[in-house]
């Protein structure tokens, strides 16, 4: 769901930068504090960032025929929280623009907002809410990642519709009509894709719990008791 370079006209790309930069700065502030507290976290954050990049360059098998790739930020949001995922997401998006020509420099602000901020925040909220309701952990991961993807896709449609409202001038009716159109076209690939990514993320966590669950306990993603219960049921 990257917005191409040059796709957003003048007032909008600056506006999205203005929205994203404070969040990234907050993320950096939070990251600095975490790094000062626990110095061994910086290499871990780095490999997590590289992991997001590599995961997003893998192609998912897609039902609609078009190849699509996972965003990968959902997993980072569950493990590190949304603020740090925003920083990681920004760096990964910059590399994607440079290496793979996904997205671009002027649209970086908008892309960071949809994929690095709104997506992870949605993932985190759904994840926290789900864990409170005592649902199965894997089901929660599935739901959180899928909702995060949908939030990203709705945000991208909003960004495009704000820049190109129907009828030329920005009115509420024009915005809504154009939003509906962008959302409908992207829905063809994004609705099934989000479900796919949710399934893959849940599977990923399942393998991690089975093989190396101490990572998750250490990062306070799961409590020891939950892990033991999960391993008991899934073994």
């Amino acid at each position: 769901m990257h917005i191409m370079e040059g796709f957003l006209p003048t007032p909008w790309w600056q506006a999205w930068f203005a929205v994203s930069i404070p969040v990234i700065l907050y993320g950096i502030h939070k990251m600095n504090r975490l790094v000062n507290e626990k110095r061994e976290i910086l290499p871990l954050l780095a490999v997590a960032g590289a992991f997001i990049f590599v995961l997003s360059s893998l192609k998912l098998p897609s039902v609609t025929g078009s190849c699509s790739h996972p965003t990968g930020t959902g997993i980072a949001a569950i493990i590190f929280g949304p603020a740090i995922s925003a920083v990681l997401g920004t760096i990964v998006l910059l590399y994607q623009a440079l290496f793979l020509a996904h997205g671009g420099f002027t649209t970086l602000g908008a892309n960071v907002f949809s994929m690095g901020i709104v997506g992870p925040v949605a993932v985190y909220l759904v994840y926290k809410a789900g864990m409170k309701t005592k649902l199965n952990f894997y089901a929660v991961v599935f739901l959180a990642t899928a909702f995060g993807d949908w939030a990203t896709y709705v945000t991208t449609s909003v960004e495009l519709a704000l820049a190109y409202p129907a009828g030329g001038a920005l009115t509420f009716a024009g915005f809504m009509s154009s939003f509906g159109k962008f959302a409908a076209v992207f829905a063809i690939t994004q609705l099934p894709l989000a479900i796919m990514e949710g399934a893959v993320s849940a599977l990923l966590f399942k393998y991690v719990v089975n093989v190396k669950s101490d990572i998750l306990v250490e990062m306070k993603v799961l409590e020891d008791a939950v892990v033991r219960k999960l391993r008991g049921t899934s073994a």
């Binding site: 780095a46 490999v47 893998l58 098998p61 893959v200 599977l203």
Partner: peptide
């Protein structure tokens, strides 16, 4: 299709675990 889903899940988790260990070594 089913197999590719589970394969890609395995691939992702192996990558994750290996990258975590790599991070420890790097530190």
């Amino acid at each position: 299709f089913r197999r590719s889903l589970s394969s890609i899940g395995m691939l992702g988790s192996t990558l994750f675990i290996r990258s975590w260990e790599q991070g420890d070594k790097l530190f």
